[in-house]
Design a protein around this nucleic acid. Structure first.
Lengths: 341, 341
DNA sequence: CGCTGGCCTGAAAGCGCTCTCAGGGCGAGA
DNA sequence: TCTCGCCCTGAGAGCGCTTTCAGGCCAGCG
C-alpha cells in the first residue's frame, strides 16, 4: 500500500484506471459487486487492495443522502452522570449495537436549555440518519424539539409528556417490576410495606410508585418517602421512615443505591434484615449488590439491553416508510431473590 | 419556514434565487459574508431565514476536505468505566470544549483487540479531522494504530510506550503531585510513610509511585502496596500494611477511592486519623471526599480540564503544518489540605 | 443465418457546495 | 471627459461518488 496522506488518497477513478474498468463498475464492486462478472470483480478488488482505497464518505453521502451515523443525545445534569452507572451502561449498549450495524455514534451532551438551539440546528442540518435521546427529565422540551427536526428518533425511557408525541420509546417495565417487588414482600407476610421512591421528575420513579400502589390499597402516606436515587438520600428516607412508622416490616426501595443506604440505617439501628425488616431494591446493579450486607433482593433490569433495544428500534424506524411509527417497547424485569427479602 | 422533510430541503441555489444573487454570493454570505456589500448580505440572510436553509454538510466537506468532527476513542474495559467517574468527567471536558469550537464528537468505544481493525478503518476513512484517545493501558497498541492512520491525534494520559511515538499527550503531573503529597506527610513529622499504589499497567499509577520514591530514599518495600483504584482494594492494602508495619504513621494513597477504604480500616482498628496515621489521597473526587470521615487531604487534579486541554491541543495540531507536532502538556496539581493529614 | 432479449459495462449526469477567475461597475486621478 | 485600477459579483469548474440509461455482446431460438 503506497504512502498516503489525507490529501493524496486514491479515488474511485484511480481504482477504475488500475483495474482497467469504468468508474461505474468499480463503484459497483466496492458496493458489493452485484451484477458484475467475476473476473472484473477480482480485478477491482485487487486494485482496491493495492492502492489502499477507502471510499470518501462525504462524496458518497452527498449522493445517497445517508450518513451511516446516529446522534445520541444525553440530557443529564452533571451530577447523575458521575454517580450513576446507569448512564454509562446504557451508552455502552447503544455503542455496541450501533457498531454491530456499522453505524457511527455522534455524541450530543445537553447540559441545559441553552444547548437546545445547538442540538436543533445540528439535527436539522441533516448530519445524521437518526437520533436516540435518553435520560429525559420531567418537563423536558427536548422530545418536542427532536420531533420538530423531523429526524427519525427514539427515546430511551418514557417521556414525561407522552401526549401526542410521535416518538417511540424503549423503557423498562418499571411499574410491573415494582408490583413484583411489593407482591414478593406481601408473600413473605409483611403487613406494613413502605416505599422509598426516586425523584418525582423522572417517569421511572413515578412508574415504580404506581406499581407500589397497584398492590397496596391506600397505604399510609407516611410509608411513601422520596429520595434522589443516592445512597445518602436512601439512608435519610429510611431513618425518617423508622421514626414515623417503627412498625414497618418491609421496604421496597426504588433503586439499589438507596437500598444500600437503607440497609446501613437498619443495621445502625440494630434491626435485622430480613427478620425485622425485609428490603427489596431495583436495578440489580452489580457493584452495589456485591457490596450489600445482607445480599440484596432486587428487581433486575437490563440496562445495556435497553440501550441495544433503542438502536434496534431506531433501525426499524429508518427502514420504514415515513409515517409508520413502530410501537414503543417495554422490557420485562426479573425479581432476583437473595438474602434481604 | 416552509414545511420540509429531509428530501426537499432547500439548497444554496434556492437561497440564491430567492435573494436574486448568484450561488457564489449566497455561499459567501452563508460563510461569513466577507467581501459582499451590505444590501446583498441582508437579502441573502433574509432568504436563508425564510427558507430555513441549512447547509448540506456532506457537500461542503466534499470540497473543503474538512469535517468539523473529531473521533474520541475510549479504550477501557467495562468495569472501570462504571466505577470511575474519571471517565465521564474527562469525556465531559472534551465534549464541552469541542462544542465551544463547534466540532462534533464521534465516540469510538474500544473494548478489546478485535475492535482495532474497525477503528483503524474508520480513522483511515477520513471521516474526522482528528482523534483523541484516552484511558490507555500498559502495552496498548492503539497509539501505534492511530499513528499509522495519519489522522492528527492527541492522547489523554501518558502512553506506556512513549518511545518514538509522534503523538502529543496531555496528562496530570502525577509524579509532582505525588511528591507534594509525600513531602506534606514528611513536613508533618511522619517518619514511616507508606504508599498504596494503583495497578502497574497504568502510567498514572507508576508516576505516582515514582513521585513517592523521589522523596523517600529507599523505603522498606513492605511500605509499598498495590491496589486497583477501588475502595475495597484500598481497604485490603491498608489492612496488610498494618499487619506488617504497625508502626506506619503516614500513608499516601494513589486515589481517593482507595483512601476511603484505607480510612475505613484505620477506623475499624481503632487508629485515629490524623493523630496516629495521616492519610493523603489523590484526585479530589468530590463525591468521595464529601463522604470521607475525617475530611480527606488529597492532591487535586483537574480531570475535566484535562479533557478540555486535549481538545485545545488537538486544535493546535490541526491548525499547524503537517510535521509540526506541538509539545505534550502536563497539568499541575494542588494539594488540598483537610483533616486527614 | 438473422433476430430477440438478457446481461454487463461505460458514458455521463448530477448530488450541493466552494472557490477561482474573468468581467463589470464605479470612483479617482489626469 | 477619459482611463486606470479596485472592488464586487457571477459563471463555471470540480470535489468523489452513485445511478440511470443506452448500447454492445452473446446465447438461444426460429
Amino acid at each position: 500500500m503506497p504512502e498516503q496522506t489525507a490529501a493524496n488518497r486514491p479515488t474511485l477513478e484511480a481504482v477504475a484506471a488500475r483495474a482497467g474498468v469504468s468508474r461505474a463498475t468499480a463503484s459497483r464492486v466496492v458496493n458489493g459487486g452485484a451484477g458484475v462478472r467475476q473476473p472484473l470483480v477480482d480485478k477491482v478488488r485487487t486494485a482496491v487492495d493495492e492502492l489502499g482505497y477507502v471510499p470518501n464518505h462525504a462524496a458518497r453521502s452527498l449522493v445517497t443522502r445517508r450518513h451511516g451515523a446516529v446522534a445520541v443525545i444525553i440530557a443529564e445534569p452533571e451530577f447523575r452522570v458521575f454517580s450513576d452507572p446507569f448512564f454509562a451502561q446504557q451508552l455502552r449498549g447503544i455503542s455496541r449495537e450501533l457498531t454491530a450495524h456499522d453505524i457511527q455514534l455522534v455524541l450530543l451532551w445537553v447540559e441545559n436549555e441553552s444547548d437546545h438551539d445547538r442540538i436543533a440546528r445540528y439535527l436539522a442540518g441533516g448530519h445524521v440518519d437518526g437520533a436516540i435521546a435518553f435520560s429525559l427529565h420531567g418537563d423536558d422540551r427536548l422530545p418536542a424539539l427532536i420531533t420538530e427536526s423531523k429526524v427519525p428518533a427514539v427515546l430511551g425511557g418514557r417521556p414525561g409528556t407522552e401526549g401526542g408525541l410521535p416518538l417511540p420509546y424503549v423503557d423498562t417495565d418499571n411499574r410491573g417490576g415494582a408490583r413484583e417487588a411489593v407482591r414478593h414482600l406481601v408473600s413473605l407476610g409483611r403487613g406494613t410495606i413502605a416505599h422509598i421512591a426516586g425523584p418525582g421528575d423522572q417517569t421511572s420513579a413515578l412508574d415504580r410508585i404506581a406499581g407500589y400502589h397497584d398492590v397496596l390499597i391506600d397505604p399510609d402516606p407516611e410509608l411513601l418517602r422520596e429520595g434522589h436515587f443516592t445512597e445518602e438520600s436512601g439512608a435519610r428516607a429510611m431513618a425518617e421512615l423508622l421514626d414515623r412508622r417503627p412498625d414497618v416490616d418491609g421496604v421496597f426501595v426504588a433503586n439499589d443505591l438507596m437500598a444500600l443506604g437503607a440497609l446501613r440505617v437498619l443495621r445502625e439501628r440494630g434491626l435485622r434484615v430480613p427478620q425485622d425488616v425485609a428490603v427489596v431494591g431495583f436495578d440489580d446493579m452489580e457493584a452495589v449488590v456485591s457490596a450489600s450486607d445482607p445480599a440484596l433482593t432486587t428487581v433486575r433490569q437490563d440496562v445495556e439491553g435497553l440501550g441495544r433495544l433503542s438502536v434496534k428500534l431506531l433501525i426499524k424506524l429508518l427502514n420504514r416508510q415515513a409515517g409508520h411509527v413502530p410501537a414503543s417497547v417495554i422490557m420485562p424485569t426479573t425479581l432476583v431473590r437473595r438474602a434481604s427479602a
